[in-house]
Amino acid sequence: MSFRRRLSLLAAGLTLAWLGVAAADAQDNLLNVSYDPTRELYVDFNKAFAKKWQAETGHTLTVKQSHGGSGKQARSVIDGLDADVVTLALGYDIDAIADAGQLAKNWQSRLPNNSAPYTSTIVFLVRKGNPKAIKDWNDLVKPGVSVITPNPKTSGGARWNYLAAWAYALEKNGNDEAKAKEFVGQLFKNVPVLDSGARGSTVTFTQRELGDVLLAWENEAYLSLQEFGADKFEIVVPSLSILAEPPVAVVDAVVDRKGSRKVAEAYLQFLYTREGQEIAAKNFYRPRLPELATQYAGRFADVKLVTIDQTFGGWRPTQEKHFADGGVFDQIYQKGR
């Protein structure tokens, strides 16, 4: 009997302890749902922000992180993953969350620079010595060249890859859409495997050693050089690429329910400060702040960049035309098989 009583006391104690932990946890915490290659960036950034937040408010802050393919992450938030902030790979994925009614439709105008505090672009990562002599997009459609890119259906980076190739073909063929479609179709014939996120593709290329060239975020390519050494891979910058603007937003429905709007907004605004921008630049994202852009200019190749708004008329029509079910990507990828 006394054993039983002791057992129930223990159980009660454990429950209390657990509740205590839960209560302490509930003070200041944020969930940042992000896309794949930002892991290292937000490890650094979260540390810096938590320090600042502590200094300003005296609260300890825990930032939880979730990473995955951008489209998949948006889907999780729509399905109820309690993200206070989303930091995704492209605007459309946040539009999709807005369409589900979880944040204001005008989210993109709530923060400076289209709500994209840092930018990036798409470059090529090739094996040391560039054995297939890949210099530009037209080298990717040659027979015998194996191209690694993730799946545009689930990955934001992959959609930027696809659109950069499309923009190149438009420019080379006097804006001929049919030619562009043929070019991108040819390119995807050279893709042996589609991972669901950018990081999966990087691992496929660098670890499993598949493919001759990886189409990658610039930051992801530099990170690979840093991780695996410059003696294994080289970065090739094509003649033209796309300005990738990975946007950030506060998820209204979540922060209003949790009462975390203040810290969530401060978190995103911190991305635009000098300190936040410096962390981004150190993690190979192109900073927006002019003085830092100049300071880190040597790090980033000077490449002609087209934008999604000018060349494609924004994300919504682009998503509809290229990546929706039965869209251009489906047509060329089915045909290519």
Partner: peptide, 21 residues
């Protein structure tokens, strides 16, 4: 939902670590 340190079981954590090199 892959929230690090909160909803990652061991097999999921293995994947995350692998993806982080």
């Amino acid at each position: 939902g892959h929230v690090r340190g909160y909803t990652n079981t061991m097999p999921l954590h293995v994947e995350i670590l692998y993806n982080e090199y």
